[in-house]
Amino acid sequence: MTTLTKQTLSHLDWLESEAIHIMREVAGQCSNPVLLFSGGKDSICMLRIAEKAFRPGRFPFPLMHIDTGHNYKEVTDFRDKRAAELGERLIVRSVEDSMARGTVVLKSADESRNKHQSVTLLEAIEEFGFDACIGGARRDEEKARAKERIFSFRDEFGQWDPKNQRPELWDLYNARSFKGENIRVFPISNWTEFDVWQYIEREQLELPSIYYAHVRAIVRRQGGMLPVTDITPARPGDTIENVRVRFRTVGDITCTAPVESDADTIARIIAETAITTITERGATRLDDQTSEASMEQRKKEGYF
């Protein structure tokens, strides 16, 4: 904790305070918000921030996960456990349900479902009438995100219009929207991956086990490692290796790759992060490398 005689906040305290302020603005301005919680490290930080923002009261929003059906069991188990510990309501909506309804149509059976989360998310927003979705995206993740507002307006199709964003001044956030539209809110916009790890350590936050080094069967493709799972089986000719790895980011199995690592504690992960030479998305997100503008394109289409 900050020493109270010295009247400036440490950088983590400042970032935390800003995030709490943002969450309380959502609670104060929006009538039906929701917090997106995947069980990933960024959204785990978000839950701690929500506790600091609203305890001893309950969260003024439910938690929601858009499940592609292709998530690691360790992560979805953790998701359920954490929501139960907090005593907060967890809504899960599934891309597979959208596929059954026919609103998501895959080009092929093994196409990544990651980008189709947008459809299920928009369906859930409509189903519950959410006017704001709080998410754990950060500006340091990607070029298009670096230009997104903290309160980011989306039209009825969930589209982001990067050239027509609301000006955002001081700490005066404008969360107003008409029925059918909604606002995406990113309380940890100003955090970097390193800040997230430092916060996890300081707050001693529990993480799904796959964030720590473990031995996993992988194959190597396109210079990256792909875990061998039921959903991503080895192809004929692949060499399966057992490698000590950890995940820097967890998401859909088909597009989230681990990195080689011996880091089995938060302190070791922080040490590795401090000297790492590859960005988080570059190392681990197979979906962002397709084109330079791919994130911007997906956000325009309603992606988080």
């Binding site: 950088h11 500006r139 340091d140 070029k143 298009a144 670096a146 230009k147 990067p162 050239k163 964003q165 916009s189 100003n190 970097t192 390193f194 330079e292 503008a293 911007e296 394109q297």
Partner: peptide
Amino acid sequence: LTDGLQAEREQGITIDVAYRYFT
């Protein structure tokens, strides 16, 4: 590094405020 949006890359100019971080 800072030219983030497609339109900016096409025109070679900066359109919107971008936020960057270093320590």
